[in-house]
Design a protein around this nucleic acid. Structure first.
Lengths: 189, 189
DNA sequence: AATAATAGTAAACGAACGTTCACTTGGCAA
DNA sequence: TTGCCAAGTGAACGTTCGTTTACTATTATT
């Protein structure tokens, strides 16, 4: 087994148990029978930049684990690998989510928001318990039906405007339950 | 200081150092002067579901740290909180990214892909070193200029088609450098 | 075949871990 | 004021940690 496979097992452990394994646990993961073997294996992994050790000497995941590099804009293009290393990094979850307790993901089925760049099949990240501002995209229950629309206020009246000229704005008749505000759109190809 | 503030400090430590702090380190974070105080504090946090301990008795982040719940579709609506607890969860990074080493984020400036649901200001997650398939969205350098377009092959010739009728398809004259394939679109409101 | 270098096992080390016990302090109720 | 409970300190405990040392087995080189 190669060093990459071992580090993959370690990172699998991290994902599964939400912490890095101890040397004894890496023994079980890899099949080695001595801690010394792990000690040297880990040193090789550090040299290969597969994992890291912090100032206290504890094993931690690589800086790139869970972080993606930001390279600028499309128009500026993609620089050479040398400059990529210095690039700023972000964690997508942290970038998108303020409060995990109140955040949820919904899948989009209809085409009522295509003109706002939300296509059928997209995932929307919504947040509950927030008051919608004018122009926000909201997930709402209107007269026993769920939709995603622009939230508009005009003359004190609430209007739900679709992002598609095919459909007409909705004026809630009986009930209006703004369940969540759309915070982000995620589309995977 | 309340228990939530303490747990916030602990999760800040986790984000910063990529591991959970030891009890001694929590002492420094919180200002307590004895490990016993931490021991009881941690037990309270576990009762309050702010952190967890695994089977080996080690402190690990809560299950929801880094995970978002999936609630179904927009049309099906948002269920009551009781059902939310049982919801499936995903980690957005893991969902979107296959290989961190070859993945990058670019910001979109132009409007050449609006009809494909990619608006100016959106972030695109791109992957380097992959061969584009017909219909993929790619970031390419054509005749010394960078653009994002649909990658189309017709009769053995490569065509770069914009997702906006305002613009015309590009037939590369001298150079064509497909730098990356767009894997995902991320839009934050 | 002899040698050196590499990679593994096994055992022992001090240090740090989380836990427990005994004691002290501070605030509230009787 | 007295007594009680909750909350914090401090020290000691056994366990596990990562590291080191010593030795053995395997592989490659001369």
């Amino acid at each position: 087994m190669g060093i990459e496979e071992y580090s993959a097992k370690i990172l699998n452990f991290l994902r599964k148990f939400r912490r890095m394994p101890s040397y004894s646990e890496i023994m079980k993961l890899t099949g080695f029978k001595s801690k010394n073997a792990i000690y040297r294996l880990v040193n090789k992994m550090i040299e290969a930049d597969l994992v890291e050790k912090d100032s206290a000497g504890r094993l931690i995941p690589n800086k790139l684990s869970g972080m993606v590099r930001i390279l600028g804009t499309v128009e500026a293009g993609i620089p050479l690998s040398a400059e990529q290393e210095k690039a700023e990094t972000i964690n997508i979850d942290e970038y998108l989510i303020r409060n995990y307790e109140s955040s949820f993901i919904l899948k989009v089925k209809g085409d009522s928001m295509v003109e706002a760049g939300i296509l059928p099949g997209d995932m929307v990240l919504v947040e509950r318990g927030k008051l919608p501002h004018n122009g926000d995209i909201v997930v709402a229950e209107v007269d026993h039906e769920w939709t995603m629309k622009f939230f508009k206020k005009k003359d004190g009246k609430v209007l739900l405007v679709p992002g598609n000229k095919k459909y007409k704005p909705i004026v809630p008749r009986h009930e209006l339950n703004i369940a969540a505000v759309v915070r982000a759109v995620i589309r995977k190809y």
